[in-house]
Structure formats: structure tokens, C-alpha cells
Amino acid sequence: MDRGQMAKWFKDPVKMGHKYSLGVVYFATGCGIIEIPPTITTRWDAERFGVVPAATPRHANLFLITGYVSVKTLRAIIRTYEQMPEPKYLIGFGSCPINGGMYWDSYNTINSLDKYVPVDGWIAGCMPRPEAIFIAVTHLWTMIDKDMADGYKRYKKYYRQYRRNQERVLQHLEWPPLYPIGEGE
């Protein structure tokens, strides 16, 4: 353990625990998933950073969207995100979730992921190297330290707007709202 961080551990042990044990759901849409096997295995070894693949979304707190998001995929992403326990962080990996990437004029690919689910950070590039994931994870540590990784709080606060956008794209959602619609902005 880094002795320089001792004070932080005594001050807020829960936050430090969250920082160094990120269970990840890799959402394998599109080509980005090809970067994940070298990342989590011995070549780059994501476990150095406490990043461990989680078996189910209910055991995870980091959600990595690795690739373009079609309308059908968005449904699965929303369901997965809503199942994860708080605190939860969502990172878009690659240029496609940011603005559509090379699929920006497709009839079935949503262009900006952050209109439908709150995104804590982006990894730009097509494709980003595995090192970029570690840079993102270390940035996320800093953000957790400063309480800036508040995507799940924003989701709750502005749930009415998120749900409105989700319903506009998917037309019918077969699950009830996660939070009461009347509350929040």
C-alpha cells in the first residue's frame, strides 16, 4: 500500500475501497471488445489497477461501453445500467459512443450516448489502446476522490429527462421507471 495515501484511507475508507476494486461489465458491442482480452489477461493485466471483470451487472460498479450503440443495444445498456448497484460509473470507449463515429449517419445507431444514460468519462480513439483504459481508470480515481464521478446521482436527479429521451428512441419500454418520474428535474 502507498503510505502517502494513509491519510485518505483513514478519512474515507469506503471511497478508497470503491476506487481500488472496480468490478467491470464489458459491454461487448462492436469492435472495441477486441481490446478487452489483452487488457484483462497477463499482457496488460488490468488487475494491477484493481479492475476485475464482474460476472453479472449486479456485482459490478464500472460499465464500459466498447463500441457503437444501436437502438436495440441501447435497450440492453439501459437495463444493465439500472441493475448495477450504486456507486456506478459508466465510461464510453472509442469514438462511436461519443458522436456516432463512423456510423454517424446510420439509420439505426444512436449518436450520443450521454443523451440516454449518464456518462462519467470518455476514451476517445478508434480504437483506443489498452493503455488508454488504464489512463481512464486513473482519471476515474481522481474523479472519485474529488466527488466528480457523480453520473448515478445525475441519473437520479434528471431521471425525467433521461426517461423521456429513452422513450422517444425506443418507443415502448416494458419496464417501469427506476425512480419516481415526478421527482427531480
Binding site: Y107, K115, Q161, R168
Partner: peptide, 15 residues
């Protein structure tokens, strides 16, 4: 279609 539909979805307005 993209311009009329996907681009017309509003951004989340945050305080």
C-alpha cells in the same frame, strides 16, 4: 433521417 430524428433528441439540461 438522422438529422430529423436522432439529432432532434434534446441534450440533458443540467443545472
Amino acid at each position: 433521417y438522422v438529422k430529423e430524428f436522432f439529432d432532434s433528441i434534446p441534450e440533458i439540461e443540467e443545472e
